[in-house]
Every structure is written in C-alpha cells, then in structure tokens.
C-alpha cells in the first residue's frame, strides 16, 4: 500500500513538473513576444520563402497554428502540439525540428554514456585510493584535483586538449567527416566505420570523463571516510576481518549509493551538460543544435530542443525515483 502511495505521489509530482515546463515554454516563446508587441509567428518565419513575402507567410502560420488567437486559447493549442511532438520546422535547417532531434539524439548518447561509465569507474577507483590513504599526501592531491575539475571551464581545457592531441600530436582525428570517410572520399561502412567513429569520439569521451568525475569522486570519498569511522566498521575490524576486505566489500557497497544517485541525476541532465564539448569538438549532437539555434535565432529549434532536453530530464528523474528503493533498501516509502 505504501509503495503504491509513494509511486502515485512521485508520478503526480513529475507530471506537475512537466506541466510546469510546458507553461514555462509557453511563457517564454509565446507570452513574452506578445507582451513586447511581436507576433510570435514572425519569430517562426524566414524573411522570404519560395518567393512569398513575409507577411503572407506570417498570415498562413497564424491561420495554421492559431498564433493570433487570444493567449488562453493559444495555450491549449500549444500544449497539444508539444505533447504530440509537433515542434515546428526549423528556420535555419528547413527541416522538422523533431527529425533534427531524432538524428542527433544517438550522437549525444554515444558521446555521453561511455564517458558516464568511465568517469564513474574513475571516481570509484580514485575514491578507494583516497579512502585507504586518508589524510596523506596522495589523498590530498586526489581530492584537490577533483575539486579543481569542478571549476575548469570545459570549453577552455577542451580546446587545449583538442589542439594538443588532435593537431599537435595528431593522435586523434579532429574532424568527424574526415574520420568516417575513406581516403577516396567514400563513406566507410561496416566495422571500419565504427572503428573510425570511435577513434574520433575517444578524445571527447575521455575529456568528458576527466572533467566530470570530480563530483562523484568527492561524494564517494567523503562517504567512505565517514563510514571508516562508523560502528559497523569497528565491529568488523574487531572480528578480525581483513582491512582490504572491509574496504572493498563493505565500505564500497555503502559508499557507492550516493554515487549512483548522482549518476542518475547526471543522466537526467546528460544532454544539457555537453553543450560546450559538442561545440568544441564539432560533434553534431543536441547541445550543438541548441547553440546553432541560438546563433541563428531559430525559435522553433530553440523551443523544441529545450523542450526535449527538459522532457528527458523529467522522465529520467521519474525513473530514478522509481528504481531508487531497489538500490537503497533503507529508503522508506513515505
């Protein structure tokens, strides 16, 4: 019974959040222009299209999407279009926004998911090192480096890494198109394609790994250090269990829980976090799409991309809420 209540409460909360995001989108993209005397349709049309003058295009859009309706009626039209993924047509790409997003979703996933796994492993390994040498030089150095990684501007270090390893040492390819075409200009197929693609993605993946492991490492270390002084560890020690076994078996298992939570949150904000890295390494993912939309003031693209990124975050957070009791049995269904 309590489980059911917990689930319904969580789902209701997340649906409310989604509703809030839609309202927020509506305010930004529809109400704001109207307040400042701009017809939202004008933000969705290029200057000319197929020889038609702008005013006619605006009128056509007004008719089609009801953009000249009063705000309250327009809200329902807007909500319906978002919920059915009718996100409009990008002005700069001249393609439906949803198909642009569909094409770029796997790219970002391919970039982010391996780095997420790698950075979690890195965080745990370094964390174990820190815990076993608590307070010594090694621990201080590792913790300091982790804290530093919070504050390193990704766009700065990324550019330096790209130029050093890509252009100077020439270890990694720097251009996606070059990486996946053979020397005579045909696109590679099969295994060769994937090998070369991965060769290209290695540098950004490693870079994201290094830049994002810090938070998890500190979480894991602080938790582990705290557990080291706890009663159950003292008890285990008193029973004569090997220190290594305590560390690897008991402490790791307990200290990893907040790290898992953190990874979940990171997955939720997956596509939001790599905007800069996609921009630097020139990877055609969702973040870069957003930046391109902002550069070209492409409102349908901006709105659609932002909506999808937020929607993904909501869905993942909901999933996280649902599986969290499985990870940490101590959590109570309130």
């Amino acid at each position: 019974m309590s489980l059911l209540r917990y689930l319904t409460k969580r789902i209701a909360e997340r649906i409310a959040l989604l509703f809030g995001i839609i309202i927020f989108n509506f305010i930004i993209f529809q109400v704001l222009p109207t307040i400042y005397g701009v017809n939202p349709a004008e933000l969705y049309v290029p200057l000319t299209y197929k020889g038609l003058p702008r005013s006619e295009l605006v009128q056509a859009l007004d008719n089609q999407f009801g953009l000249n309706l009063p705000l309250d009626e327009r809200f329902f039209v807007y909500m319906k279009s978002l919920l059915t993924f009718h996100l409009g047509i990008s002005m700069s790409y001249q393609q439906p926004v949803i198909s642009l997003i569909e094409a770029r979703f796997p790219v970002t996933a391919l970039l982010v998911i391996p780095s997420l796994i790698l950075s979690t492993i890195l965080a745990i390994v370094l964390g174990l090192y820190s815990i076993s040498r608590q307070g010594k030089v090694g621990d201080v150095a590792v913790s300091f480096t982790s804290i530093m990684t919070y504050f390193i501007p990704a766009f700065w270090l990324g550019e330096i890494v790209l130029y050093f390893f890509g252009f100077y040492l020439r270890i990694f390819p720097t251009n996606l198109a070059e990486a996946i075409t053979s020397s005579n200009g045909h696109t590679l197929v099969g295994v060769a394609y994937w090998v070369d693609l991965l060769k290209f993605l290695t540098l950004p993946i490693l870079f994201i790994t290094v830049i994002s492991y810090g938070v998890r490492n500190i979480l894991f270390r602080n938790n582990g250090v705290e557990l080291m002084g706890s009663n159950f560890v003292n008890y285990l020690r008193a029973r004569g269990i090997d220190d290594r076994k305590i560390l690897y078996k008991h402490i790791t298992r307990n200290a990893v829980i907040p790290v898992v939570t953190r990874v979940g949150i990171d997955i939720a904000f997956l596509f939001a976090g790599v905007v800069f890295i996609e921009d630097i390494f020139n990877i055609p993912g969702l973040g870069r799409l957003l930046v391109r939309g902002a550069e070209n003031l492409d409102v349908p693209l901006l709105g659609g991309d932002f909506y999808i990124i937020s929607l993904f975050a909501v869905i993942i957070l909901l999933a996280l809420d649902l599986i969290y009791p499985l990870i940490d049995p101590r959590v109570k269904y309130e």
Partner: peptide, 25 residues
C-alpha cells in the same frame, strides 16, 4: 524551487538570452 532546480540550466540560459535578444526586451 524544485522546478527551477530541475530545469536544465545552461540550455535555459541560452534560450532566455536568445529570446530576449529577439523580442527586443
């Protein structure tokens, strides 16, 4: 608070700046 905490920050920043730029706010 939860609402603002859960909206992806950087994309929202980019969207807001552009839309303000565009509508002449």
């Amino acid at each position: 608070t939860d609402f603002f905490l859960l909206i992806p920050g950087l994309p929202l920043l980019i969207v807001l700046i552009s839309i303000f730029d565009l509508t002449g706010v």
